[in-house]
């Protein structure tokens, strides 16, 4: 039990929290304005098309109308901008969490649910718990450690449980079906069309995807050296998916960053920038005249 707790609450630098927050809240703005906009137009659809999900029944969410989607859209963007400044992290973070989840709900409560957007909610829920964090803050925090562990678990659960869903809905025969072929026919790029001429490649891809998803929890049992390489491997996998069928699970890509020592990358990037500029390496000082 105590070993499990020290794993679940392994301290993480607050600087990493500050950097991860910037990625998450900047992504929320891009997502709402550019990537996922179908909920916005539901404000103009007649309420007869509204099919409440359980979430909407529990919280008594009414059918969308134009004021509701405008407030959600611009209110969530404004809360994300506040969160990006680093001020009022708990209030701003909580507002972003409610706003983003509600906005996704409006998108999904008209008959079509996108299945790649569940895990990101975990990041939005745990980040406000931590409170103030600055990019130069070297202190470590057990609460931050818990938050990152929760995000990592949600991230890997997405892979593992989607393999489970393939067995539940597609059967064990999913690996031998034409599912990827169908996806490539429907929305393949020139690379996808090229793969269609090598049918065994798409068949083998299904075996590879299914195996990688089933084995994904192993990431928690390997050394840091291999953990980072496995994350790089998942980024490569998602880049290849995008190249072949132009589908990317955008929020999930942000979640993967929770496995990486972001503050170390930042420090080495800053040091490299300074030496490129010909500056002497120096200590960070907060000078005020």
């Amino acid at each position: 039990m105590s070993r499990l707790w020290s794993w679940l609450f392994a301290p993480v630098p607050l600087a990493r929290v500050a950097l991860f927050r910037r990625c998450v809240y900047a992504f929320v703005i891009v997502d709402i304005l550019l990537l996922h906009t179908s909920g916005y137009r539901h404000g103009w659809a007649d309420p007869v098309w509204y099919q409440p999900l359980y979430l909407g029944e529990v919280f008594r969410i009414p059918a969308a109308d134009v004021p509701q989607v405008e407030i959600l859209k611009w209110g969530t963007v404004a809360a994300s901008l506040l969160a990006l400044t680093g001020r009022l992290p708990r209030v701003a973070g909580a507002l972003v969490a409610v706003g983003w989840v509600w906005y996704q709900y409006v998108a999904f409560a008209y008959g079509k649910v996108d299945h790649d957007r569940g895990d990101f909610i975990v990041a939005l829920l745990v980040l406000p718990l931590i409170g103030m964090a600055a990019t130069g803050d070297r202190r470590r925090s057990e609460l931050a450690g818990f938050a990152f562990r929760a995000v990592q678990l949600a991230c890997i659960a997405t892979y593992f449980l989607s393999a489970w869903a393939k067995v539940r809905f597609g059967g064990w025969d999913w690996v031998n079906s034409a599912t990827i072929t169908r996806a490539v026919i429907r929305r393949g790029t020139f690379l996808g069309d090229w793969l269609l001429h090598i049918p065994w490649s798409l068949h083998a891809t299904q075996w590879v995807i299914f195996s990688l998803e089933m084995l994904s929890p192993l990431i928690f049992f390997v050394s840091e050296y291999w953990r980072r390489r496995m994350i790089a491997g998942w980024f490569a996998f998602h880049a290849a998916t995008y190249a072949v069928i132009t589908i990317a699970f955008w929020p999930h890509l942000i979640m993967l960053l929770a496995f990486l020592p972001l503050e170390q990358y930042r420090d080495s990037a800053v040091a490299r920038w300074r030496s490129w500029r010909g500056e002497e390496p120096r200590l960070r000082t907060s000078t005020s005249p």
């Binding site: 649910v113 299945h115 790649d116 569940g118 997405t158 449980l161 989607s162 489970w164 869903a165 393939k166 539940r168 809905f169 597609g170 059967g171 025969d173 999913w174 079906s177 034409a178 599912t179 990827i180 072929t181 169908r182 996806a183 699970f249």
Partner: peptide, 10 residues
């Protein structure tokens, strides 16, 4: 809900 992206067989 279940993460069923591309989970059906064709």
């Amino acid at each position: 809900g279940p993460w069923r992206m591309y989970a059906t067989s064709t």
